[in-house]
Amino acid sequence: MGQTRDPHNLEELIDDIEAIDSPSGRIRFDDVLDATGQRSFGPLLLIAGLITLIPVISGIPGVPTLMALFTLLVCVQLLLGRRTFWLPRWLRERNIEDSKVHKGLRWMRRPARFTDKFLHHRLAVMTGKTGRRLTAVACVLIALVMPPMEFIPFSASLAGAALSLFGLSLMARDGLLALLGFVATFAALLLVFPYVI
């Protein structure tokens, strides 16, 4: 499947994922990456964030940890200056029932439409080269604390919100969302810190 454009807001991302053809009844992570643009940092972060944020998907044991590994791999490669992202085959081949994916997307549709109304190009420094690197560092920190979040009720949703804010900020070039992402990152770290020391 080829994608000629990268999504620029939540509804476009949801549309791209909903359009995935899954004859086997299961959607591979690689299918999602292919549909939404494997070379773009913003959509990749947003995918990890939404998967971690949507209760019907993030409630599956091991999913937050997988998304943490995915986030870590992508962010480290960005910090190393790679222009395309490599992911191991076993991670790309992970799959989930398409009914659960579509149920989660339906759950996200109304909040996505509401959120997209507020996206604007602003605070460009937060989504430029330096901003992207700071975002990558923040996401590495989030990824490192996501595995223990599986045992702390609702904490993974906070990590998912931070990743989603960062991803959406880069897609829409909205620096205000990046600032909110840093706030959510700080809150997530504060929440998990007592459990990991």
Rank of each mutant, 00 (worst) to 15 (best):
M1N: 08
A159M: 03
V74A: 09
P43D: 00
K103W: 12
R109D: 08
A162Q: 04
V140W: 01
L168W: 03
E97R: 11
F186D: 07
L168T: 11
I197R: 15
L46F: 03
L179C: 11
L123H: 11
A68I: 01
V32D: 00
A188S: 13
G37S: 09
L165F: 05
A188N: 01
I96Y: 00
L177P: 01
S99K: 14
L176G: 00
F41L: 15
A48E: 03
L53G: 08
V32M: 09
R82L: 11
I142M: 12
A172W: 01
K129Y: 12
A138Y: 06
L13H: 06
R28E: 10
R28A: 13
L13E: 06
L69C: 04
A143Y: 12
R39P: 04
L165P: 03
I57M: 02
L13F: 08
G49V: 08
A19H: 10
F151E: 09
I54V: 11
R5V: 08
V32N: 02
L78M: 09
A188I: 00
A172R: 03
S58M: 01
N95A: 15
D116T: 04
M146C: 05
F41S: 06
V125I: 13
G81H: 09
D98I: 14
A112T: 05
I152E: 03
A161I: 04
E12K: 00
F29V: 08
G167Y: 03
E12C: 00
G59P: 05
T71W: 07
P43S: 00
G81E: 10
L179Q: 07
P153E: 09
R83E: 15
T135S: 10
L165W: 00
R106F: 13
L190R: 13
F114M: 10
S169E: 07
K129H: 14
G81P: 11
E18H: 04
L141Y: 10
G49K: 02
F193C: 10
